[in-house]
Design a protein around this nucleic acid. Structure first.
Lengths: 198, 198
DNA sequence: TGGTCAATCCTTACGTTGTAAACTTTACGC
DNA sequence: GCGTAAAGTTTACAACGTAAGGATTGACCA
């Protein structure tokens, strides 16, 4: 016998709400992501989400964390088929990052929403958001250990590459730029060349 | 005799509303920028702004355009005291850009608000937003003409530098990065070095 | 077995937002 | 002088986030 009753939601409402929120974000944009719309799409009352998310931003944070998880997974999948050279892996990772953003424009906008910047309130999100940067840091650590990073520390280099990739993705996302993947590849390569790693 | 009547607003309401909006944005953030708050701060009714701005986004666009004008002016002021070498001027401009964002964090968030990305609806904004990039393009054109830009075209180089600077500014703005000015200088220099211009 | 309790979902309600509509007052051209 | 447009006003509405309180269910315990 199922533990769910007739009027209890049939399953994991938290996951269903998160999934509905993600669908709405990807289809209609961040501004269309209202609690009422999410609840309606899931078939529950407008107040039901409050039993699983403290407020709207908690739901947004859950969607964002899911997005960062997927971004990390896709970046790792791209790196799995890349060359073994750390510098070229960094370029490949940059391309994968930009490609993810191009494929999920509104989701990325949500992920980098200013309301989530101070993510101290959502530790899961902070962990998920930090992971993509960690793989970059690891590759830069390899380069530094091999003496291939001249004139800059691996931490600052990581920040700069991250900022470049994020900037290209964001500007392309808002239609300021075209051909983001080429720019990401060329830009990352230029940075690494400037530091003597390529 | 003054042409203004007792209940007509005393002066240029459009400019007053824009100024009030900017004050609110810089003090309380973008999310506090409501039409009612702007109207109240200016001392008029909540509906008055609609006689000067089609809707909320038009007011936001006006504030953004003003911000881009100031950004351009400050960047130009910084370049006026910089060296004559185009590559070093690009670095100086990047620092000025990042500094402006650090000094006006919420204003810059508004300027790059996704709602304004499709700025076809606001031609003034589009023109103001394009100007900072044009000075960068000019300096890169000088470098390219002097044969100091290897392996990349000046247009793509401009997009990459712009994206780097914007990315650093944005991430620092959301507290993801610290010491943005140093990163901007080091990043721009690395890019230029990677292209053989430094 | 019966009763308390926490979890989950519901309905109702409130304040704030952007925006539409109709009204009032003033300046100006015929 | 009157009609018209411009620039204010008040009033109204739907949608939003959220608070409060009520209903239903399963778990646990005497």
């Amino acid at each position: 016998m199922k533990p769910e009753s007739a009027w209890h939601f049939d399953g994991d409402l938290k996951a269903a709400l998160t999934a509905a929120a993600r669908t709405i974000v990807e289809r209609d944009g961040v501004e269309a992501l209202t609690l009422r719309a999410v609840a309606a799409a899931t078939g529950v009352s407008a107040m039901a989400p409050y039993h699983h998310f403290r407020d709207r931003s908690a739901l947004v944070a859950a969607v964002a964390a899911q997005g960062f998880d997927q971004l990390y997974a896709e970046k790792m999948a791209a790196l799995a088929t890349a060359s073994g050279d750390p510098a070229q892996r960094i370029v490949a990772g940059s391309i994968a990052y930009v490609r993810f953003v191009a494929e999920h424009p509104t989701l990325y906008r949500l992920m980098k929403s200013p309301a989530l910047a101070n993510c101290a309130a959502h530790p899961d999100l902070a962990a998920a958001a930090a992971r993509p940067g960690q793989s970059l840091a690891a590759m830069l650590g390899e380069l530094a250990a091999a003496g291939r990073l001249r004139g800059i520390g691996p931490e600052q280099a990581g920040a700069i590459i991250w900022a470049l990739v994020h900037g290209i993705a964001t500007l392309a996302n808002d239609a300021y730029l075209a051909d983001a993947e080429t720019l990401a590849a060329d830009g990352a390569a230029a940075l690494l060349a400037g530091w003597g790693a390529l």
